[in-house]
Amino acid sequence: MRVTLQSLSSTIQSQLSELTARQAQQQTRIATGQRLLQLSDAPTDIADIVSYRSMIARMQRYSSTLDQALAEQNTAEGALESISSTLSAIQTLGVDALQIANQDKWRTLAVQLRSNIEAIIEAANATHGDIYVFAGTKNTASVLVPSPPETTQRPFELVTTTPTASNPSGLEVRFKGNIEPRTVQTGDASAEQVSTTADKIFGAGGTALFDTLIALYNTLAYNSDGTPRADGQIPSPDQLENVSSLVKQIADASATVNATTAELGIRTNRMTSLQSQLQEDITRQREFLSRLTDTDVAQATMQLQRDQIAYEYSLKVGARLLNLSLFDFLQ
């Protein structure tokens, strides 16, 4: 085969150009850490890469949702513990009221009980950020509009209404929220309830427990005819029986609160465990993605080195081949 100057030079040029392009490519891969510089570098991997990225983004989203849900549940858990502890104190107060030695102190005990009821209401109005955790989906001040005698934009409020025979103090706890649960997505096909509804804690309508507590208060603070109890006045047998019955109801309510707290704890554990699982999955998926998208620096460096050597020798050989012709030897 005849070899001409032009074929020689075009071959050398295309080889040098190819080697330069390859070096530039390896250099970019090392500098950016990215194996794929364009989609067509690995067409078979693109669908997998998009899929891994999508999966990682979704898992991070669920993890972030769980973070927020756990923070809210921690607040709810704290409030429930406070409610439970106050209910225990009320139970003790009720039992104390039944003791003969304390039967002349019901008026004082009633004052303590009211203070405890207010403490429970305070705990029931616990907030996480700007939301009330036990108010269902009507959980911000903007929609908790008070109607007289209510005065606050909080979900639970102790108000005083017109006294009646059955409620001589006129005390009443109003609940302005609702008992709709709030759920969030924690997986492609799974959701978790993040809110604890008021009926699960305080019974029917979110106020049943308060009705019991106010009934106890009325029994301790008022006589059967609705007149305020005088200091040192001894209660009637009916009233003692009533207190006994109410203390039992409070004990049952306290058990319900404890069960709800336990349920919340179980849910929190489940979420914590799910989050750990998600973190592990994210790490694993990132590793798979990295294998597809990231540069193997050692391999790229070796390839760059090989290309540099080839380039250097191509230049040397090309220069020699193109340097001499028969004309150099003609006299």
């Binding site: 990215q34 998009v50 972030s64 939301i131």
Partner: peptide, 27 residues
């Protein structure tokens, strides 16, 4: 593509924001 300023990234950020809003829609 391949990069960070893509429709896929924007879709992910949209769903991230939707998820965040679903966690606390009143905020």
């Amino acid at each position: 593509e391949p990069g960070d300023q893509t429709i896929q990234t924007a879709l992910q950020q949209f769903f991230d924001a939707a998820s965040e809003l679903a966690s606390n829609p009143s905020r």
